[in-house]
């Protein structure tokens, strides 16, 4: 066991991947409480899939991948935030339409590019082991923005999730803050793509808070527990990935699913015994 842990932490690939992976774990676990509170799971599915259009644009126009995908994802998230208010279209339907439309655009753009330019498997399912220094820098900047936003607006966002009408009546600029939340969500989604890929990103943004939901009794306790589950899931998943040579993103999501099952089971047992 000790030999394995020593080998894991001594591996050059893991040493390079560990920092961005854990950084993403911190950011996604923090945002995941807002995803669950505001019921934005489907939005994260929509935005992550829609970011394929950004990646396709980047490949076609030879632009940097992550920054282009970031701006596309933020743009799409903001569009989704505005659409229901302005056009009378339900957010659910809006997400479905934008999700399908931009994914279709992304598929066409990427299919036109030469096969050598695109690691399609990496885009779809993530591969933190191939993270470059530039990617790490980009993920670090993104993390700082997301964490600063949470420090500034987490309580207002929490109030809005609890009761939007009362939050507005108590003087919170809810329309503006909703836009900021969606924009930050778009940024977080793109940061996850390197780790979990377009398909699995939602798992990182839902599972940590879902594990914590059974035990948390306030925003801060949820936040702390979500962080704990996310770091455990990421580290455990990377170890699985290293040991069995599994894709890193899928291994992390699978580990988080296992943690969710354990958390749910423990909560069920605890409720049963207390009754």
């Amino acid at each position: 066991m000790f030999d394995f842990i020593h080998a894991f932490f001594s591996s050059t690939v893991m040493q390079e991947a560990l920092f961005p992976a854990l950084l993403i774990a911190v950011v996604t676990s923090s945002m995941s409480i807002m995803v669950l509170a505001h019921r934005l799971s489907f939005l994260t599915v929509g935005v992550s899939h829609a970011s394929l259009a950004g990646l396709g644009l980047a490949v076609t126009l030879s632009l940097p991948l992550l920054p282009t995908a970031t701006f596309t994802a933020i743009g799409i998230a903001l569009l989704l935030a505005l659409m229901p208010n302005r056009q009378g279209i339900n957010e659910d339907a809006g997400t479905g339409m934008l999700f399908a439309g931009s994914m279709a655009l992304g598929v066409i753009l990427i299919s036109s590019a030469s096969r050598n330019e695109v690691d399609l498997f990496g885009l779809l399912f993530g591969n933190i082991l191939t993270v470059s220094a530039e990617d790490t820098r980009w993920i670090t900047y993104g993390s700082i923005i997301v964490m600063l936003s949470l420090i500034t607006w987490s309580r207002s966002w929490w109030s809005m999730a609890f009761d939007m009408i009362t939050a507005t009546a108590s003087g919170i600029a809810t329309s503006r803050l909703r836009l900021v939340l969606y924009g930050i969500m778009g940024l977080t989604v793109v940061m996850c793509v390197k780790l979990a890929g377009i398909v699995l990103t939602t798992g990182l943004l839902v599972l940590p808070a879902a594990c914590a939901w059974f035990w948390g009794r306030s925003m801060f306790s949820l936040w702390g527990l979500s962080l704990l589950f996310s770091l455990t899931g990421t580290l455990g998943g990377l170890m699985w990935s290293y040991h069995y040579d599994w894709p890193s993103g899928a291994a992390i999501i699978l580990m988080l699913c296992l943690l969710f099952t354990l958390s749910w089971g423990a909560s069920w047992l605890s409720n049963k015994s207390s009754h």
């Binding site: 609890f162 948390g216 925003m219």
Partner: peptide, 13 residues
């Protein structure tokens, strides 16, 4: 909504 919160935290809002 189904947010985990103590009554005191709801009042604090």
């Amino acid at each position: 909504p189904d947010l985990p919160m103590r009554a005191a935290e709801v009042v604090a809002m």
